[in-house]
């Protein structure tokens, strides 16, 4: 288990990163913190894709899909940061809980 590295190792690493990403998203109050959690999860899926490409089926397709995931992650980060900055201009805070004016 410790002396030979295979597909499972990478998958478990990715799963751990996925869970930590969820943890970050669930526990952070700061909008940027939540965004960081999203990025961690996207990294986890990229590790999955490339591990499958290396050890299992998929080959080139895994690489290309991972490439598009990176593009999407960059796009999402850009728009999210812009919205966070906009939130800060309006509320002078990036605390998600503080921005709660709308009620049922």
């Amino acid at each position: 288990m410790f002396t030979a590295i295979g597909l499972t190792h990478y998958l478990l690493l990715a799963a751990m990163l996925f869970c930590i990403g969820l943890w970050v998203m669930a526990s952070k109050r700061n909008a940027i913190g939540v965004l960081i959690g999203v990025e961690l999860i996207l990294n986890a899926s990229n590790i999955n894709l490339l591990a499958f490409a290396r050890y299992s089926t998929g080959g080139m397709n895994g690489h290309l899909i991972a490439l598009f995931v990176i593009v999407l992650a960059a796009a999402e980060a850009a728009i999210a940061i812009a919205i966070v900055v906009n939130l800060y201009k309006n509320f002078m805070s990036v605390d998600v809980d503080k921005a709660a004016t709308m009620k049922n």
């Binding site: 899926s45 591990a51 895994g62 966070v84 939130l87």
Partner: peptide, 30 residues
């Protein structure tokens, strides 16, 4: 501004989780 931050956080989370699921499907089916 508040609605947008909720939308982007929720949407980003769901999209990321979906991408993880899709990556697993890719592994199963190639």
């Amino acid at each position: 501004a508040e609605a947008a931050i909720k939308y982007v956080i929720f949407g980003g989370t769901c999209a990321a989780i979906m991408m993880y699921g899709v990556s697993l499907l890719f592994g199963v089916f190639g």
